[in-house]
């Protein structure tokens, strides 16, 4: 059985407690309704940590590895769902996709996948076992993809002038910083590889865990706090604003279709 150090146990317990508190915040403050995928991601983290801990101490190491792989796959899928959820909040300000971003967003995903596939193919970490090489490269691919998508989304929203609401921007801050740090760690991991008796990779991984713990605390604090309260508009004014919206929409449609001379 693999030996767990004091730091491993601290990171494991800290991460678990952080996720439980964060899930509590998401449910009690009603954020789970707005961010179901992020909530599912946090719930999956709690489940995977609990199951992994139980299996680690009660089952053969091979069972632990299998469960680890299963949860890793699920985690990657949920991370992409969280990205999609952030995109929904930013690029569908009125409940429908902003007309001018959909194609750019799809291009961003396609270009990111190609660039990441190329970099992952270039990486050739030296490892004693094939499975370890696959782990290192797939981790790199996932981290690169998340960070590129997040940064691309930030640039696109600023370019087209779409604002970010308070809580979605807080979630994105955490995901963005953690993804960038993960990319740095996984580039190093893939460069130095894994060698018997060399614990450099493990030391670097600790830094990533610590950053994640900080992100957890940030999410807990930020998602507990309420967004600035809006002022209430009288019903008549709301009606006027919706009429104005229709006017602006119609103006643009008319101008687009006019034929000169």
């Amino acid at each position: 059985m693999m030996h767990l150090t004091g730091f491993d146990l601290f990171a494991w317990a800290g991460g678990f407690i952080g996720h439980v508190v964060l899930l509590f915040v998401l449910l009690v403050r009603g954020r789970a309704r707005s961010f179901p995928f992020f909530t599912a991601y946090i719930a999956e983290q709690i489940l995977s940590t609990s199951v992994a801990y139980f299996i680690f101490y009660h089952d053969p190491f091979r069972v632990y590895q299998t469960s680890f792989w299963g949860f890793e796959g699920l985690e990657e899928i949920l991370q992409l769902c969280v990205f999609y959820e952030i995109a929904l909040h930013v690029f569908r300000p009125t409940g429908v996709w902003a007309q001018d971003v959909k194609k750019t967003l799809l291009s961003l995903v396609a270009v990111s996948v190609v660039v990441d596939a190329l970099l992952t193919w270039l990486a050739q970490p030296e490892t004693p076992r094939v499975i370890q090489r696959i782990v290192l490269r797939s981790n790199l691919f996932a981290a690169l993809l998340m960070s590129e998508l997040l940064v691309g989304m930030v640039v696109l929203s600023a370019t087209v002038g779409l604002p970010w609401k308070t809580h979605v921007s807080r979630i994105a801050h955490g995901v963005g910083i953690y993804s960038i740090v993960s990319v740095a760690v996984f580039i190093t991991d893939n460069f130095i590889g894994i060698h018997r008796g060399d614990h450099t990779g493990r030391e670097i991984e600790r830094f990533r865990y610590l950053v994640y713990l900080v992100c957890e605390v940030y999410w807990i604090v930020m998602l507990w706090a309420e967004a600035p309260a809006p002022r209430e508009l009288p019903a008549a004014m709301k009606m006027q604003i919706y009429t104005l919206n229709r006017q602006v929409e119609n103006d643009l449609r008319r101008i687009r279709t006019w034929r000169q001379h």
Binding site: G161, I241, L244
Partner: peptide, 13 residues
């Protein structure tokens, strides 16, 4: 006034 969102979005377009 979050209600102004619809107009802001239309003006953005």
């Amino acid at each position: 006034y979050p209600e102004a969102l619809v107009v802001a979005e239309q003006l953005r377009l």
